[in-house]
Write a protein that binds this DNA or RNA. Structure first.
Lengths: 124, 124
DNA sequence: CTGTATCCACAACGATACTG
DNA sequence: CAGTATCGTTGTGGATACAG
């Protein structure tokens, strides 16, 4: 390895960085968002910005309260999502992405693009 | 599709394509590779090319026979991976990516890059 | 080498209902 | 609005052993 410059042209080839080491960025990334709903939730937050619980629930489409709740808790633990109480009287909460979470945008975008190009028919 | 509205400048904003419809490319993509090991396996196949079972098992690092077997079967069902018997006498098999599977490269690369940039310390 | 056979544990998911 | 409580099902992961 010349010098493992992480970005830019290093992308043209998928090489080393995992050789010999016992961790791998793909593995680690997958452990954070490699779940059925996590990428979708992050995506909705990217798309719609900070959202309330039910707003998110509606946007995510098909997720149950419990699963959304679990997922958000998990994303919080991982430092990808922030939960802020914006109002006590009418109890309102806002979920938003942390910087860490926002940085996932390229990943989510690539997933979206792939889905758009290769899965135009979900019935497959 | 070089015309892809999906890439390039379209990325600056994450908008529509999911509005009103009951499917979403992110959801669908996540349902295919939104698992702990799937992206890693696909990555290894991208990196090392067609691989045998144990070769893959070694490369994936830490995965058990059962889980790898299960995952490969799942990836096959999804049309992302092909399994070819290359030799009967000394029984040898080769797993390789289908075109569909190879097309996931940008997604895997983005996951790798994100991991490299944001998770230099897996201990976090 | 290429897996399968078990068994087990636990996480994820899902539906429904219900509370503050 | 923002969740929790339950319960049940399925999926995922991991260890060990064994078979073609």
């Amino acid at each position: 390895m010349t010098d493992n410059s992480v970005d830019g042209d290093a992308v043209d080839e998928l090489e080393v960085w995992c050789a010999g080491e016992d961790w791998c960025p793909v593995t680690t990334t997958a452990s954070l968002i490699g779940r059925k709903w996590h990428p979708v939730i992050v995506h909705r937050l990217l798309e719609h910005g900070p959202s309330g619980f039910n707003e998110l629930k509606t946007n995510v489409d098909g997720i149950s309260s419990k699963v959304l709740s679990d997922s958000l808790e998990n994303l919080e633990e991982k430092g990808l999502v922030d939960r802020d109480i914006v109002s006590e009287k009418p109890f309102r909460v806002q979920y938003s992405l942390t910087e860490h979470g926002e940085s996932l945008e390229p990943v989510i975008v690539s997933m979206r693009d792939w889905g758009l190009e290769h899965l135009t028919e979900p019935s497959e």
